[in-house]
């Protein structure tokens, strides 16, 4: 292990972590914004509303994110009207294409998570709201969504981790994210172990920080669905200690 080379490259890794987190934050925020209406539509009983969203999520979830990224980054330049349009300065930027691809991808997965969580809300809650005379919109914004968003937390935390790992694909289209920094260090110094182990360690640190953050959020907002504490259990975690075979 050549620790001097690692220390020398640390500033590059720090910049890379910044880019990775930026990609992740923008893609997740935009993706969530897009996923809310999509998820509500996907959970709709009207097939003319839910089917198109199903098709979108099916296609996105059935193809690799790398293909989606390449279609946007390399693909759209095939059409002259795209190159002549006002959007071209954006679409010719690798950073923007990566964010766009990640956003469209995470929106599909998140829409399915939200739709699944909405279906998991006990129907009695909706009936209770109806009997109190709430309008459809009120039921949605006051009962269904708050309940569904909480229930979606565990699945969404998985999606966030998957996206964090997915952002490493940005390095394939020349974005200098954390993986890009490692590839740069590898090609400069030809020390692949040092380069990629450092990146791997950074990713692990980020992953487990995010996992911890979501555990905190689940304790805060999902406490009412946690397994009931009993006299035998001191820690409150019952499910993790299943019987061994």
């Amino acid at each position: 292990m050549n620790f001097d080379a690692i220390i020398e490259s640390l500033p590059m890794y720090a910049t890379g972590i910044g880019t990775t987190l930026q990609l992740l934050a923008v893609a997740l925020a935009a993706g969530l914004l897009l996923a809310m209406p999509l998820g509500i539509a996907r959970a709709s009983n009207n097939v003319w509303i839910s089917r198109p969203v199903w098709l979108y999520t099916y296609v996105i979830r059935g193809t690799p994110m790398l293909v989606q990224l390449f279609l946007i980054y390399y693909g759209v330049a095939q059409f002259e009207w795209v190159r002549l349009s006002v959007l071209w300065p954006l679409l010719s930027s690798a950073w923007f294409c990566a964010v766009l691809a990640f956003t469209l991808n995470t929106a599909a997965y998140t829409a399915e998570i939200i739709a699944g969580a909405m279906r998991a809300v006990p129907y009695g809650e909706v009936e209770a709201a109806n009997s109190l005379g709430m309008s459809k919109l009120q039921v949605l914004t006051r009962i269904l969504l708050p309940s569904a968003m909480r229930r979606a937390l565990p699945a969404y935390s998985n999606e966030v981790i998957m996206m964090l790992h997915g952002t490493s694909l940005a390095s394939v289209v020349t974005v200098m994210d954390l993986t890009g920094a490692a590839r740069e260090m590898n090609s400069r110094t030809y020390l692949p172990f040092e380069a990629f182990l450092t990146a791997g360690a950074c990713y692990m640190l980020l992953t487990f920080s995010l996992v911890g953050l979501f555990h905190f959020a689940e304790r805060r907002w999902l406490q009412h669905l946690a397994p009931r504490k009993n006299s035998f259990d001191v820690s409150g975690v019952v499910l993790t200690t299943a019987p061994r075979i």
């Binding site: 790992h165 390095s171 993986t179 490692a182 692949p192 791997g200 990713y203 692990m204 992953t207 487990f208």
Partner: peptide, 22 residues
């Protein structure tokens, strides 16, 4: 834990380039 913490692309580059040297 390690596999869930590191992107597959990074693991692949590590095994491909690192394995070569190793």
């Amino acid at each position: 834990t390690v596999v869930r913490g590191v992107p597959d692309l990074v693991l692949m580059l590590l095994i491909f380039f690192g394995g070569q040297i190793g």
